[in-house]
């Protein structure tokens, strides 16, 4: 079913069942998504960030060479592989093909994000998340991330993050498009919060197993 038909179906179901319209619009978030475009971040760096970026060597430092997803922004923003979002009564499930990241985010207004479970059970360095809805938009807060990198490619390549980084993700669907904005707050490395934005296309693609293998033919002996 195309996006318009799907949206109409969800709307009619919501109408017949007496569900609030916001719920039908929220359901548009569900689906498999592929990146269409990515915004260029405008961040004001602290001296510590400038030093860290200058020291970053991709073929040595990129965590994905060790099969570790660098950050939530990196996983969401990687252009090639699709990912799937599903809404459940009490949580959001987001399955990324990249690095087989399986994210489970509780939707619990009473839950303090610092007490939330790890957003990806087997990758604690991606932090703890809790989600909520603001109208039809899904908002996810994340804290308790590991020291590392916001991104390892594109205009934010080598941007560092401290354990004090706070992520605030906003997801809003419009038919066959999904708009995601991620606001990063980390006073250690950034003078003020900065955002990165992405547009996604609803696609009919399978989220494949990634089965990351640490590069047998790595670059260590050439660095």
């Amino acid at each position: 079913m195309d996006g318009t038909g799907r949206r109409t179906g969800v709307f009619l179901a919501g109408f017949v069942l007496g569900l609030p319209l916001a719920w039908a619009e929220r359901a548009d978030l569900e689906g498999t998504w592929l990146q269409l475009s990515a915004g260029r971040p405008s961040a004001t760096l602290t001296p510590a960030a400038e030093e860290a970026i200058a020291d970053y060597v991709p073929l040595r430092d990129d965590p994905d060479l060790r099969c570790l997803p660098p950050s939530l922004t990196n996983v969401i923003g990687i252009p090639d592989p699709p990912w799937e979002l599903r809404l459940r009564d009490d949580r959001v499930e987001i399955d990324f093909e990249y690095m087989d990241v399986r994210r489970r985010v509780p939707l619990d207004p009473e839950l303090n994000v610092a007490d939330a479970p790890y957003t990806v059970e087997d990758h604690p360095h991606l932090g703890r998340s809790v989600g909520r809805f603001e109208g039809e938009a899904l908002v996810i807060d994340t804290v308790d991330v590991g020291q590392g990198y916001v991104d390892t490619r594109g205009p934010a390549e080598g941007f560092p993050q401290s354990p004090g980084m706070r992520y605030e993700e906003h997801y809003r669907a419009d038919g066959d498009r999904l708009y995601v904005e991620i606001i990063h707050t980390d006073p250690v490395y950034y003078v003020e919060p900065f955002s990165m934005s992405f547009e996604f296309l609803r696609v009919d693609l399978e989220v494949l197993e990634f089965d990351c293998q640490i590069d047998a033919a790595n670059y260590d002996d050439r660095l």
Binding site: S37, L65, P79, D80, P155, Y179
Partner: peptide, 26 residues
């Protein structure tokens, strides 16, 4: 708040660079 956020997202989607040529590391 939501409307303002939408404007930010649209600006990002329409006016800014794409990463189509970029892989895992750049």
């Amino acid at each position: 708040m939501l409307r303002a956020t939408n404007h930010i997202l649209l600006a990002g989607a329409l006016g800014l660079a794409t990463q189509a040529g970029l892989a895992h590391h750049s």
